[in-house]
Simulated scan of single mutants.
Amino acid sequence: MNEKDVSEFEYVELNKSGISDEVINNFDCGNQDMSDYLHLQAKTDAAQSKCVTYVLVDSTKSRIYAYSTISSYAMYYYELADKFHTKPMTDDGNVLVTIPAVEIKMFAIDKALRKQVAYILDPIRKRHFSTIFFQWFIEKLYYMSMSVIGFQIIFLRANDEGFNLYSRNGFIEYNEYIDTYDTKAEGCIPMIETMYDAETVLFL
């Protein structure tokens, strides 16, 4: 990567990005399934309102440095109906409660930048590209939660490779919410971060 100003980079919605198919197909994160998703499925899923993909590009739009796919979500848990002075929904006196959330279904960076310190972008703190790119996307979600659609929690399912990255950025395993089934979540660890915790990670 040549020396660049941070302000050159932006996460843009794939279907509105104007990025050529050649640039999209050149992206390789080192995981065939995740690369193929961007190449073959991401645009269709967005058009069908299943999920939306954002790609990280610079001003030239000649290379995709990272991408993330998100969809709406909700965190489910049980509370005593007495707390809300309402009628129980279950035999043991509970009601099912939800918290609005967003799910990060995929996050991947260019394999050439994996496990690399981003000296060009971060000469002082010397963070890895993966950390910087992920935090940039969390920042986008943070502002999205206040201006596009409200949500209070970011949810994801971490594989072994991503677990440490997400943990370093404030995500924790959860057990108080009801986990939902996902065909691609086999062996993954459900993790969450509140928007308050995201704010702390990003700005403090």
Rank of each mutant, 00 (worst) to 15 (best):
M1Y: 08
E3V: 12
D5C: 03
D5T: 09
V6F: 12
V6K: 10
V6T: 07
V12H: 00
L14V: 02
K16F: 14
G18H: 08
I19K: 00
E22F: 09
I24F: 05
N26L: 10
N26W: 06
F27H: 02
C29A: 05
N31I: 15
N31W: 09
D36E: 09
L38A: 03
A42N: 04
A42V: 09
D45R: 05
A46G: 10
A47C: 04
V57F: 00
V57R: 00
V57I: 11
D58Y: 07
T60P: 00
T60R: 12
K61L: 07
S62A: 14
R63Q: 14
R63P: 01
Y67K: 02
Y67M: 09
T69V: 13
I70K: 03
Y73D: 14
Y73I: 01
Y73S: 10
Y76M: 11
Y77G: 00
A81R: 08
A81F: 08
H85D: 11
T86A: 08
M89V: 04
M89S: 11
T90W: 02
D92C: 13
N94Q: 14
V97T: 11
V97K: 15
P100A: 04
P100F: 06
P100N: 08
E103L: 15
E103T: 06
K105R: 14
K105I: 02
M106Q: 12
F107P: 01
A108P: 04
A108W: 12
K115E: 11
Y119W: 09
D122S: 12
P123Q: 03
P123E: 06
I124A: 08
I124G: 07
F129C: 05
F129G: 03
S130W: 03
F133Y: 14
Q135M: 13
W136N: 00
E139C: 05
K140E: 08
L141Y: 09
L141G: 09
M146C: 04
Q152C: 08
I153R: 02
I154W: 01
A158G: 01
D160G: 11
G162A: 12
N164C: 08
L165I: 04
S167N: 12
R168A: 09
R168I: 07
F171R: 03
E173Y: 07
E173W: 08
N175T: 10
Y177Q: 02
Y177A: 01
I178H: 15
I178C: 08
D179E: 13
D179V: 13
D182Y: 10
T183K: 14
G187T: 11
G187R: 10
C188K: 15
C188Y: 10
M191Y: 11
I192Y: 02
T194M: 05
E199A: 09
E199F: 11
E199N: 06
T200Q: 14
